[in-house]
Amino acid sequence: MRRVSDSEAQDRLHELVRAAAAGERIAITADDGGVAELGPAADADADGRGDDTAEDLRPGDQKTPEERQRAKERLMRRLRSQTPTGKPRDWTRDELYDDD
């Protein structure tokens, strides 16, 4: 696994993202000892882009109802496959709409 510093990763992000999309795993190290890992998405397909395509992500496009439904299904599959973070919690109405 290739290791790069966080400052080097910032300078070469585009190159590192392409390498990760091609299957390489890259460890990004920080001065405080922290490490992050960059690699291919777990649900990436052969082109490394996962279920989304550039056409799905362009705002303002006019899509057919079938295209919208397929995009919604892909989004829901991705959301269901992710691991929830934090503890489950029952929110009260006041907490959800608090104007702090």
Score class of each variant (00 low, 15 high):
86 G>D: 00
98 D>L: 15
84 P>A: 11
75 L>D: 10
8 E>A: 13
84 P>E: 06
4 V>H: 00
61 D>Q: 15
5 S>A: 10
11 D>L: 15
19 A>H: 02
86 G>C: 03
76 M>Y: 08
35 V>D: 04
60 G>P: 01
42 A>Y: 08
95 E>A: 09
40 P>M: 04
62 Q>F: 13
58 R>W: 06
74 R>N: 12
48 G>N: 02
61 D>M: 15
92 T>K: 05
10 Q>A: 06
87 K>T: 13
77 R>H: 14
24 E>V: 09
82 Q>N: 12
62 Q>K: 10
86 G>N: 00
72 K>L: 13
25 R>I: 00
53 T>G: 03
92 T>E: 02
59 P>Y: 14
60 G>E: 05
64 T>D: 04
15 E>S: 05
83 T>C: 07
17 V>H: 06
97 Y>G: 03
32 D>P: 02
96 L>M: 09
34 G>K: 12
34 G>M: 07
75 L>M: 14
15 E>W: 09
46 A>P: 01
1 M>Y: 12
63 K>N: 08
57 L>Q: 08
36 A>Y: 03
97 Y>A: 04
2 R>V: 11
70 R>E: 14
27 A>S: 07
69 Q>I: 15
95 E>K: 06
1 M>N: 13
26 I>E: 04
67 E>V: 10
98 D>A: 15
31 D>E: 05
40 P>L: 10
85 T>N: 03
13 L>N: 05
76 M>K: 11
39 G>E: 07
32 D>E: 08
90 D>F: 07
87 K>G: 02
97 Y>I: 06
24 E>Q: 09
3 R>K: 13
78 R>L: 07
49 R>E: 09
25 R>F: 03
32 D>S: 11
36 A>K: 06
60 G>I: 07
56 D>P: 12
76 M>R: 09
85 T>A: 10
51 D>Y: 12
83 T>W: 04
66 E>W: 11
26 I>G: 01
1 M>V: 13
6 D>W: 14
92 T>A: 03
39 G>V: 00
25 R>G: 01
34 G>Q: 10
93 R>K: 06
100 D>Q: 14
33 G>M: 09
48 G>A: 06
20 A>K: 04
62 Q>Y: 11
69 Q>C: 13
41 A>P: 00
31 D>S: 05
19 A>I: 00
83 T>P: 00
69 Q>T: 15
97 Y>H: 10
56 D>A: 11
72 K>R: 11
79 L>E: 08
38 L>P: 02
27 A>R: 04
85 T>R: 08
45 D>M: 05
13 L>M: 13
35 V>Y: 06
64 T>S: 15
17 V>Q: 01
50 G>F: 00
43 D>R: 14
69 Q>N: 14
55 E>H: 07
35 V>K: 07
